[in-house]
Write a protein that binds this DNA or RNA. Structure first.
Length: 349
DNA sequence: AATGCGGGGAC
DNA sequence: GTCCCAGCATT
């Protein structure tokens, strides 16, 4: 197929080296992909940019060089290493998945898409990605890049996510039996570097002459998506309890919902009509002072503003059940999400 | 089919 | 500020 061959040639000429990647065309180079690396990178790359993932991927493979090492780690240690990367259910599913592959598959990932998709944290995209990239199986990979590239190439004007099956069938028709993994990565690379959401570089695109969307002059408006809804702003209070030696009182968040299983300094409820000076919301009685600045943070579906209250207590101060002291030397390594690190960095006066 | 779920970079 | 990113799980 003309389009397929042209893109594989483009991929070979423009190959980007990444920590989890093997050189293109494995049959020629002889380099075999590492399924553990492919899986780990694909989980990290879900809704997360390549630049952000790089350092975390290196940290994880340094801490746990093989799937077996990760499977035998404590979940708490995995959450600590994942802290800051976001979408924390990924970290817990990653750990669960490693345990299942070790126990049920003798530490080796299955090669078939449908078996991969049974594993926690692996959905349609990731199953196809692992199957094609790690095992050279003919699987059609559809991520955000593929949706954009293919909807433009074929001038698909139906709205996402409804148009996804059509996009997948076009992608399947284009995917070769020879180098399916390289082709999948080629389309994604094209979307990341040439066929970008805004101002695509059509003049250097290997598919410019085939692009139906460009012929119709509608390529920059594709893919079409449902309109976003506005994010409300919730408010709350964060409570920093500091001991004389600099230790901070932390607790673990619930196992479900936002920032599940992660650590935090105690906070009040977060709501749109929350008063930020109601010290009845504090977890302990103490002499509270208000920090001069507010922490602002945006989650997927709402903005958050936290007033930061702080207090200094002596070494004998009793903490509520489930809380612990984290001294300055251990604080950095705690499973603290970014919003909570902002709270702890807030100047107190 | 909708919704909940982080964080950062580009514009 | 908005948009998007190598999406998944749940309802």
């Amino acid at each position: 197929m003309q389009a397929t061959t042209a893109l594989l040639h483009w991929y070979d000429r423009n190959f980007r080296t990444l920590p989890w990647r093997t050189p293109p065309n494995p049959e020629l180079s002889g380099a075999k992909p590492n399924p553990y690396h492919v899986w780990l990178s694909e989980i990290m790359l879900q809704q997360t940019t390549v630049a952000t993932v790089k350092t975390y991927f290196i940290k994880f493979t340094d801490l746990w060089p093989r799937l077996e090492n990760l499977a035998e780690a404590e979940e708490e240690e995995v959450l600590k290493a994942w802290a800051g990367l976001g979408y924390y259910s990924r970290a817990r599913n990653l750990h669960r998945c490693a345990k299942i592959v070790l126990r049920d598959y003798n530490g080796r990932f299955p090669e078939e898409e449908h078996k991969l998709q049974q594993l926690p944290g692996i959905g349609p995209y990731t199953a196809a990605a692992i199957s094609s990239i790690a095992f050279n199986q003919h699987a059609a990979v559809v991520d955000g890049n593929v949706e954009r590239v293919i909807s433009r190439l074929r001038a698909i004007t139906d709205r996402l996510p409804g148009a996804k099956p059509v996009i997948k069938s076009h992608m399947a028709a284009l995917t070769p039996h020879e180098r399916p993994g390289d082709f999948a990565q080629a389309v994604m690379d094209l979307g990341a570097t040439v066929c970008t959401p805004r101002s695509p570089a059509c003049t250097i695109c290997p598919w410019v002459d085939l692009c139906e969307g460009r012929k119709q002059g509608i390529h920059e408006s594709l893919p079409r998506k449902a309109p976003k809804r506005v994010k409300p702003t919730r408010k709350g209070m964060a409570f920093v309890i500091a001991r004389e030696d600099g230790a901070i009182a932390l607790r673990r968040r619930p196992d479900k919902g936002l920032l599940a299983g992660m650590s935090e300094p105690p906070t009040s409820q977060w709501s749109e009509d929350m008063k930020q000076d109601d010290l009845g919301q504090a977890p302990v009685k103490a002499d509270w002072s208000l920090a001069p600045s507010t922490v602002k943070h945006t989650f997927t579906h709402f903005h958050l503003e936290l007033a930061v209250w702080h207090t200094q207590v002596d070494a004998a101060f009793p903490l509520p059940e489930g809380y612990w002291w984290s001294v300055p030397e251990t604080l950095e390594g705690e499973a603290l999400p970014t919003v909570m690190r902002k709270v702890l960095k807030t100047p107190l006066a």
